[in-house]
């Protein structure tokens, strides 16, 4: 592990002895590729050793190899399910044709596939749920944050409430949301399934706070000079908000949005488990309930996918932030 402790050149390359171009390249490769690979390798090793020592009621805890096999396995199942889906639609056409032959007045309809959602379907469901919850939260949180940021007294009024609700776990909200939705959302054939609405609202309730707080702080910390500029120009309230408040608080707002999105994703998995929204959370729950010898490795696959998607969501937000932010020099990571 000598390499780790010795060479860690600073970005400016101000080391005393001038390194040769080759050694710089090696160093950069090492840092960019070698060390992460080394880290992952070490993790896999620890994982497989630890896994082989954990015995659960469902057998040994799955190591990397078992999980790898499970990924292949699940991919095959996915292909199988897709083929089944295709056959379903073919059959339906035949059934419709038969019926039209007997009953010419019948207007055939194509019904959606009735089989279980595939893993990919689950990912889609989870993404749609989390993004809609997050979007709804943002639509509420940004205006509220702006209003609170503009008025110190409003902020003082709202602050205790925000501080009270901010740390509340989704598990506490969920039963309330479920009952309220059941009472309020009573269509027999609702446009959106209840489980989706419940999960989405729960996500929304947990995603509100970081955006509200950060937006409010961002708005409140607009430099006095910029506020004076607005006063001298006699900008109207809306122009002030649009031209000065929004752009100025954008970096803080985005920091809040990023936090909100990662919280949303974490909350979603729990919400889906309990609300039975057919996404990744429910997949984990179902596998836990199934208790088959495959369940643990299937859950591990889901865990990895959940992590990967969470990471990608965060990266996407970061990219968006970089794209939108005027402060190109700000270090975003």
């Amino acid at each position: 592990m000598k390499t780790l402790s010795l060479k860690w050149p600073s970005p400016s390359g101000s080391s005393a002895s001038k390194p040769s171009p080759v050694s710089t390249l090696i160093n950069r490769l090492m840092r960019g590729l070698g060390l992460p690979v080394l880290g992952i390798g070490a993790f896999l090793l620890i994982w497989s050793v630890a896994a082989s020592h954990i015995n659960t009621a469902l057998g040994k805890f799955p190591g990397p190899v078992a999980v790898g096999q499970q990924i292949v396995n699940m991919y095959e199942q996915y292909q199988h399910a897709e083929a089944k889906r295709a056959r379903f639609y073919q059959r339906q056409e035949k059934i419709n044709a038969q019926r039209v032959a007997q009953d010419p007045s019948y207007k055939p309809r194509i019904f959606p596939y009735t089989g279980p959602p595939t893993f990919i379907d689950r990912i889609k469901t989870s993404l749609i749920t989390v993004l809609s919850g997050f979007l709804l939260a943002s639509l509420i949180a940004i205006p509220v944050g702006i209003v609170l940021g503009l008025s110190a007294s409003m902020y003082a009024m709202a602050n205790p409430i925000i501080q009270l609700f901010k740390p509340v776990s989704p598990l506490a909200w969920l039963p309330l949301v479920t009952l309220v939705i059941a009472a309020v959302y009573t269509h027999v054939n609702p446009l959106f399934p209840k489980a989706y609405v419940v999960s989405m609202i729960t996500v929304m309730l947990c995603a509100l706070w970081p955006t509200i707080v950060n937006t409010a702080i961002g708005v409140a910390s607009i430099p006095q000079d910029l506020r004076n500029v607005s006063k001298v120009l006699r900008l109207g309230w809306f122009t002030y908000v649009r031209k000065i408040v929004l752009p100025s608080s954008l970096p803080m707002m985005f920091a809040g949005l990023r936090l909100s999105l990662s919280i949303s994703w974490m909350v979603l998995i729990a919400a889906e488990m309990l609300a039975q929204n057919p996404g990744l959370g429910m997949f984990v729950w179902d596998e836990f309930q199934n208790g088959s010898s495959q369940s643990l490795s299937r859950i591990m696959v889901a865990v990895i996918v959940i992590g990967l998607i969470g990471y990608l969501l965060d990266r996407t937000m970061l990219l968006l932030q970089r794209l939108i932010s005027w402060d190109k020099k700000a270090v975003l990571r």
């Binding site: 179902d286 309930q289 199934n290 208790g291 088959s292 010898s293 299937r298």
Partner: peptide, 13 residues
Amino acid sequence: LSQPQYVGADAKV
């Protein structure tokens, strides 16, 4: 029945 969408437990169980 041992398929995950139904009972999901191991077939032998």
